[in-house]
Design a protein around this nucleic acid. Structure first.
Lengths: 163, 163
DNA sequence: TTACGTGCAAAGGCTTTGCAGTCGG
DNA sequence: CCGACTGCAAAGCCTTTGCACGTAA
C-alpha cells in the first residue's frame, strides 16, 4: 500500500500523458518530472518536500508550476490531495489498491494508512439516514504511533536509571 | 445538539470565568463577549463570522484578541476547533451532549452533525491493531444536503418547462 | 500599582495570480 | 508559429506576533 510498483508508476505516468494529449496540452519536462516524483513517493509529501526532492533529483521546478501541475494531477484523478489540518496540504499517488484512511502520529508526524470498508458502508448509511447524498469521506485517527510509544517507554525505564 | 440551552450557555460562561480566576487572569469585557457569543452559536462559525456577530452585537473585538480568546477557550476545553479543509478554521461550543461528527454540504457549505458511537469503537479497534495509541478522531462526510438535493431536483422539473 | 490584555499594524506561512519570456506540437 | 507553459515576484488569505497604550484586580 505504501509505494507504487514500478509498473504501476509507469502506467500512471502514461495515463497522465494521455490525459494531457487528449486535451491538446503540452507534455513538458516539468510536468513529467513532477508526475514521476509523485508516482515514486512512498509517503504523503507536502509541496515543499516535493520541491526539495525534485531539486535533489536535478529537476528543479518553480513553485507556481509545481502547484499548477499538482492541481492537474488531482483533477485528473491520479493524485490525492489531503489536508490533515497542519496548515499545508499533502499529496499522495492514487494507488490501484483500495481506498484507505489515515492514522496520524501527533509525536513524529508519521502518516500510516489503513483500510476498512465497513467504515465507508457505515458512513454511507449514516448519510442516507439524513437524506444526505454521500460523495466522499475523510477519516483520520490522531494519536501516537507504535514507534513513538516505544520511545516513550524507553525514556521511562531505560533512560537515566533512578536512584 | 445544535444550539446550547440558555442554562448550558450560562454554565459554560461561568466555567470560563472560573478557569480565568484560577489562573489569576483578568476577566475582561472582550473575553466575556467572545465566550458569550460562542456559547450562543447554533452553528460552526469561522473567526470572520464571529467577528461580524460581535460587531453586530455592539461588542466589537480586535482580530488578535479574538484569536487569542478562542485559543484560550479551546485550550480550556470549552470550545472545539475544526479544520474542514476550507482554508480557515471553524469553532463550535462544546455541548454537554455526546461527541459527534459532521456531514458537509459541498453545495451550500452547511454543516450537519451526527452521532455514531459504533464509529469510534471501530476506529479505536483499528488503531489498536496497528499498535497505535488512539487519542481522537476526525470524521467528515462530504456530499449534498437534503435541501440542495431538493433544489437541484426542482431546477430539473420545475424550472423553465422544456419545449 | 502592576501584570496582563487589547488593538493596530506588520510579519508569517502557504497558495494563487499576473506577466514577460519560452517552448512544445 | 501560436497557444500554452514556466518562473519570478507580487498579491491573497488566514493567522500570529510586536509593541505602545489601557485596564482589571
Amino acid at each position: 500500500m505504501a509505494r507504487l510498483s514500478p509498473d504501476e508508476a509507469a502506467a500512471l505516468l502514461e495515463r497522465f500523458q494521455r490525459h494531457l494529449r487528449e486535451r491538446r496540452l503540452p507534455i513538458t519536462r516539468q510536468r513529467m518530472a513532477v508526475a514521476d516524483e509523485m508516482f515514486r513517493a512512498p509517503d504523503h509529501p507536502s509541496v515543499d518536500e516535493i520541491k526539495r526532492r525534485l531539486r535533489a533529483a536535478g529537476e528543479p521546478v518553480g513553485t507556481a508550476t509545481l502547484y499548477r501541475t499538482l492541481d492537474a494531477l488531482v483533477r485528473g484523478g491520479l493524485v490525492l490531495e489531503h489536508d490533515f489540518g497542519e496548515g499545508f496540504k499533502r499529496y499522495e499517488p492514487l494507488s490501484s489498491s483500495s481506498a484507505h484512511d489515515h492514522l496520524l502520529c501527533e509525536r513524529c508526524g508519521r502518516v500510516i494508512e489503513f483500510a476498512n470498508d465497513r467504515l465507508e458502508r457505515m458512513l454511507r448509511m449514516t448519510a442516507d439516514e439524513q437524506h444526505f447524498l454521500y460523495r466522499r469521506h475523510r477519516v483520520e485517527v490522531h494519536g501516537t504511533c507504535a514507534e513513538c510509544r516505544g520511545r516513550d517507554l524507553e525514556s521511562l525505564t531505560g533512560g537515566r536509571p533512578r536512584r
